[in-house]
Simulated scan of single mutants.
Amino acid sequence: MDSNYEQEKSVKTYIKKRYGKIKGLTFKEHEKTVEKIIQDHSKVEIKRMLTFAQTTIDENNGHQPFFLVPYTILVSMLTVISSVIVSFVNTSVSSLNPLIQKLLADNQKKMTKEELIDWYKNLTFSDAYLALSSYIAYGFVLVLVGFFTYFFIRVGLSADRYRIKAIMQDCLDTYDEVMAKQVETDNPGESVLEE
């Protein structure tokens, strides 16, 4: 059979187009796929495809440091959020400190409930806190969604590369055995009987 694997840019694309899915194969389906590939290709072609699959894995692993960038951004966002929370608590305590001192002072006249509420409303920064915390939360969620999307896409592509390599390695390991069976089934009556 004439194979057109040379025209493809990726071994994975070629294998998927020609032999179907490679993910979630049972042992029997894996074995049949290996046998089909062996029957359609020479040992040299299978070695070339295995080398190409290994090269794509090596290239992917070479880009591994870039995978740390989203993680670094995520950790930085957590640091920013915790710094803002500490700042909020510090500002609130600093703002309420004069009120607490005034309430606890024995020589001062007692504040009425209305005066206390009015004074607290003047000191509160809840609108600014709410706006700032919502911007930080939206940014954090956006980075988190982006990170997990990138992570799952990368894991899926990496897993396919390793599956292709495993299939090609199995093809190379069992090539002689499968070809011997093929010759045996193609020519069953050619055994010479001595009389």
Results as ranks from 00 to 15, higher is better:
116 L>A: 03
182 Q>M: 07
175 Y>W: 08
100 I>F: 11
174 T>M: 14
152 F>K: 09
81 I>D: 02
47 K>G: 04
127 D>Y: 08
150 Y>F: 09
178 V>Y: 03
165 K>E: 08
64 Q>W: 08
195 E>R: 15
118 D>T: 10
181 K>N: 08
20 G>L: 06
101 Q>G: 05
75 V>Q: 04
101 Q>C: 02
70 P>F: 00
5 Y>H: 08
12 K>Q: 13
37 I>E: 01
21 K>Q: 11
46 I>C: 05
96 L>H: 02
177 E>G: 06
168 M>T: 04
192 V>Y: 12
120 Y>H: 11
186 D>R: 11
4 N>F: 09
146 G>W: 06
27 F>V: 07
101 Q>F: 01
107 N>D: 15
110 K>P: 01
3 S>T: 11
71 Y>Q: 05
23 K>Y: 11
188 P>W: 14
24 G>F: 07
47 K>C: 06
177 E>F: 13
139 G>S: 05
59 E>F: 13
98 P>F: 11
137 A>H: 07
180 A>C: 02
25 L>F: 08
38 I>L: 06
143 V>D: 00
166 A>I: 05
143 V>W: 02
58 D>V: 14
163 R>H: 08
61 N>P: 01
167 I>T: 01
83 S>L: 10
8 E>S: 12
195 E>P: 06
151 F>Y: 05
29 E>L: 11
107 N>H: 15
152 F>G: 01
136 I>Y: 04
99 L>V: 12
8 E>N: 12
82 S>P: 00
8 E>G: 04
124 T>S: 15
20 G>N: 01
61 N>Q: 10
